[in-house]
Design a protein around this nucleic acid. Structure first.
Lengths: 208, 208
DNA sequence: GTCTATATCGGGATAGAC
DNA sequence: GTCTATCCCGATATAGAC
């Protein structure tokens, strides 16, 4: 196949990428074999090498892409000048929705980052994991007297933690609180949007 | 060696266990080889099989034990009848201290549980991952009018999430907020005790 | 109990036919 | 582009000498 500048990839290449994403995100780098990917893509093992040369290179492609979708898109919420409470509500709602569509993403990213911390350096360029807009906004609200004087960095981490953890700990939590009942846990996650939005707002807003 | 009922294990066995714990917790099941464990224990590869028959059986021993130390010991804080705010402060302080001593424990447990959710069934008997005492206490405080009507399950998850996440996400967070500076991040974790204690208390206590 | 040697398997990767 | 055959290596596990 002729590769133009636009680099239009063949259908086979696409199928491999899709299979790889599925398997890597679910089972991690070590837990996924090339054979496994080939089976799901319904192609031959060696085609993976033909298109991507090595397991590492294929993984990198998947990982960078996955990492970008893992970083909560916070900036866009700040475009309009709505009150901080609503900003937080939207960040939480959007992020939990995103994670519901990609349940295994958090555990995958966090595990691989713990195993290969060096890889982060590359990522910092690719994806913009930059919470600076959020931090400044919070700082401004504190100075306006709307928010209690919390450390914006801790607050940022708190919000992410509250959203992510139910997904990372799902197998455990679903069993403890719902005896393994999946729909019940999904419902619980949905309720969680309001619950933690309230939780955060009560924690940081100055009461009148 | 004669094995009495007390099952006194040889020094070699101990060294293998210690090496296995270290490596499994750091690199996970898939990321750890028997050779690796043998090297650290300064013994021969096949001795691992002699003492534990298989990698799986050795891993199980480590995992059950690690899981128990991963579960926050909440009950003991409830013995005395101190105010709920102080209970929460102690839970958070104790748990973060525990995790500081075992930085890799959360990522390890959560990863392995996501990869082998079935294993949880065995664990539920061994360790008591039972937050029921906490839940009831919270419920009682709500009815007394001390706390806002929050869902105790969410509150429980929130507290754990706030404590755990900085450890699971450490490589990422340390890089984003401190350019990789470890002592600075350790300091940050220490401050975090007070910060999230305040955060939680503000979130749930009814103001006077 | 501890070692060496070996069996067996699966994984990633390459060569080459078509 | 796609397949088969093959190489090479590392991993778990076992057999057997000491």
């Amino acid at each position: 196949m002729v590769k133009n500048k636009a680099q239009i990839s063949s259908e086979t290449e696409q199928r491999i990428l899709e299979a790889a994403r599925q398997e890597f995100i679910r089972f991690g780098y070590d837990g996924t074999s090339i054979q496994q990917i080939a089976d799901i893509a319904h192609i031959n093992k060696s085609l993976v090498h033909y298109y991507f040369r090595s397991k590492d290179r294929l993984f990198d492609k998947i990982f960078v892409q996955a990492f970008q979708s893992f970083v909560p898109k916070i900036e866009e919420v700040f475009t309009s000048d709505i009150p901080i409470t609503e900003i937080i509500e939207r960040i939480i709602g959007n992020y939990i929705d995103l994670l519901k569509e990609n349940s295994f993403l958090p555990a995958f990213i966090l595990h691989e980052i713990n195993q290969h911390p060096d890889r982060i350096y590359e990522l910092m360029h690719a994806g913009r994991a930059n919470p600076v807009i959020f931090l400044k906004h919070i700082q401004a609200e504190i100075e306006k007297g709307v928010l209690r004087p919390v450390d914006p960095r801790h607050l940022f981490i708190n919000i992410i933690a509250l959203c992510l953890f139910p997904f990372i700990g799902r197998p455990l939590l679903q069993r403890i609180f719902f005896k393994g009942d999946q729909p019940a846990y999904d419902q619980f996650l949905e309720e969680r949007k309001k619950e933690i939005t309230q939780f955060v707002i009560q924690a940081i807003c100055i009461k009148i």
